[in-house]
Amino acid sequence: MQFSRRTFFKFMGVAGASVAALPSSARAWKSKAPPDSYGCLVDLTRCVGCRKCEEACSEVNKLPAPERADCQCTIFDRKRRPDDKAYTVVNRYFTGKLDQFDKPLPTYAKVQCMHCQDPSCVSACLAGALTKDETGAVKYDVSRCIGCRYCMVACPFEIPAYEYHNPITPKVMKCTFCYDRISKQGGLPGCATICPTEALTFGKRKTILKVAKKRLKENPGKYIDHVYGEKEVGGTSWLYISSVPFEKVNLPVLPNKPLPKLSETIQHSLFSYLWSPLALFGVLGAVMYKSNKVQEVPKNKGGA
């Protein structure tokens, strides 16, 4: 290998100049949550497990009809998860609460994409197939997806599902927040249009957060004093209030810190403007230049 002094310094000069021109540290991490997004409140004390929301969801999103749509009994024996055929499912939980005849009282909980304010999946997706919309919806653009499933690894709510049995063109499947509908004036997500007990309240996130807090305040003792989703992982568009602890209805205990913060901070402080790779290139170049000047390189060895 030949080492020309002139090409070396030319190259190093460019590298050095671009490093020197940079700000010394990356900016601090900032939330990218949309300012005036929508949200939806789930009041678990009102849900009776009729599963009409599942039916409406399938219809609006052109998914197969829900598994045994009329069943409100044995379907609940098994805990279901949203999958590639259902964006939302309702589960029944017995949490130890009893009614006045000492019979166990069920709590029903609908589960779907939470549409996080700073979604892990959006941060994770290498091609930007997942984006956080102004409406608050986390949108999936299949035309950018390569099927790496890192979004599924990243999601703390275990929501994105995969079409594992499609060999060539599988998609990530998850609740869309019906963004085509909610981006229109007065539009509601499919599930929220149908709920007969008004367990689902759709509106601006700020507004429904107030609604939730008002309900907690006006019904002392009825609810657990916590709006799930207000602060979890930096906040979610879907909010839950309940009379039983949230972890008992499979809503995970999560930190209040947005999950992408750590990895994004590391990535940007190391790789903003590629300052660290360029600096490393420069250092290694200098070492190489020096060590090869001392010992003459045997020529024409080729190969690294």
């Binding site: 994770a124 997706c125 930007g128 950018r144 997806c145 499933r149």
Partner: peptide, 26 residues
Amino acid sequence: IDIGRSWAIWKPMFYWNTNSVLFEVA
């Protein structure tokens, strides 16, 4: 073999998400 849409593997070259660790790895 592992990614669902093998034929789309070139897409990250054009669609960048610099927040993604996987993008940098790729």
